[in-house]
């Protein structure tokens, strides 16, 4: 069942509420970069990707790699909302014995295609997956979500170079360009701009969109699917902490959990009930 754009917007809101709840339960985690990716996750998991929670390993599935693994809460939210595991598991985030590790673990969590967290590695493994699909003539597509700070890792550029060399038009990468990393603004720490020009010079097709516009995200993916002989990058301009007023564009909310008062306010702002 495909969701309408309105439903996708609503799903993004639900993902955000799940993110706040689970990080509050864990009293630990990364809200900022989870909230900035909610619309991209909504469109991928609830419209675009060919995935089946009843058959998570089906051969022709699309694969998603969360290269910015610290946004695990939004991935777990999407997988739970999709039915890969019970919603109540989200409350076990980061606790001893939970499958929901601080960063995604492919052995433990159905629907997680690659264990990630160490930045730069997810995109490299996504190249391997896209290559495997080419060898097998498998129609499944590969999606990866990169952080903007992650672009500072040298391995990212090794991977981008190889994806273009192998003409991996079955690989689509999102850059969650929210402008902030742990220590502050990208521009102050280590400038990553111009992001799209860098991708272009590595022989990628690119488009720059508003990463909170579900329609634009959907159309960009459609464009990526039509692109031949080149990998495709969707550079998504986003707001870190999007949807929660006191987290938006605040670098203090990269990796900090809200207290009860803050969690209540966040969920109220997102239209949820405590």
């Amino acid at each position: 069942m495909t969701l309408s754009y309105d439903e996708l917007r609503n799903k993004a809101k639900e993902l955000r509420i799940d993110v706040i709840r689970s990080i509050f339960s864990a009293n630990s985690g990364h809200p900022g970069g989870s909230l900035s990716a909610a619309e991209m996750m909504s469109v991928l998991f609830f419209k675009q990707m060919n995935i089946d929670p009843k058959d998570p390993k089906k051969k022709d599935r699309d694969r998603f790699v969360l290269s910015k693994g610290h946004a695990a809460p939004v991935l777990y939210a999407a997988l739970a909302e999709k039915g890969f595991f019970p919603m109540e598991d989200l409350a076990t985030l980061r606790s001893l014995g939970s499958k929901l590790q601080g960063h995604p673990d492919m052995i433990k969590v159905p629907g997680v295609e690659m264990s990630t967290g160490s930045l730069g590695q997810g995109i490299s493994t996504a190249v391997g997956m896209a290559l495997a699909a080419k060898i097998d003539k498998n129609p499944g597509r590969v999606y990866a979500l990169l952080g903007d700070g992650e672009l500072q890792e040298g391995l990212v550029w090794e991977a981008l170079m190889s994806a273009a060399h192998y003409k991996l038009d079955n690989l689509t990468v999102f850059v969650d360009w929210n402008g902030i990393q742990i220590d502050g603004f990208n521009d102050d720490i280590m400038c990553v701009t111009p992001v799209d020009e860098k991708f272009k010079s590595f022989c990628w097709e690119t488009v720059v969109i508003d990463g909170h516009d579900v329609e634009a995200i959907d159309q960009a993916i459609e464009q990526a699917k039509k692109c031949k002989n080149k990998p495709f990058a969707i550079i998504a301009k986003t707001i870190k902490g999007k949807g929660v007023s006191f987290m938006e564009n605040q670098n203090g909310w990269h990796g900090k959990a809200p207290d009860e008062e803050q969690a209540k306010q966040a969920i109220a702002e997102l239209g949820g009930t405590w």
Binding site: V65, M114, M129
Partner: peptide, 18 residues
């Protein structure tokens, strides 16, 4: 994969995961 040993093993991981 060219002179890129980090990517060599990242790409290997993705192929193995498939």
């Amino acid at each position: 994969v060219g002179i890129a040993e980090q990517n060599l093993y990242g790409v290997s991981a993705g192929l193995a995961a498939s």
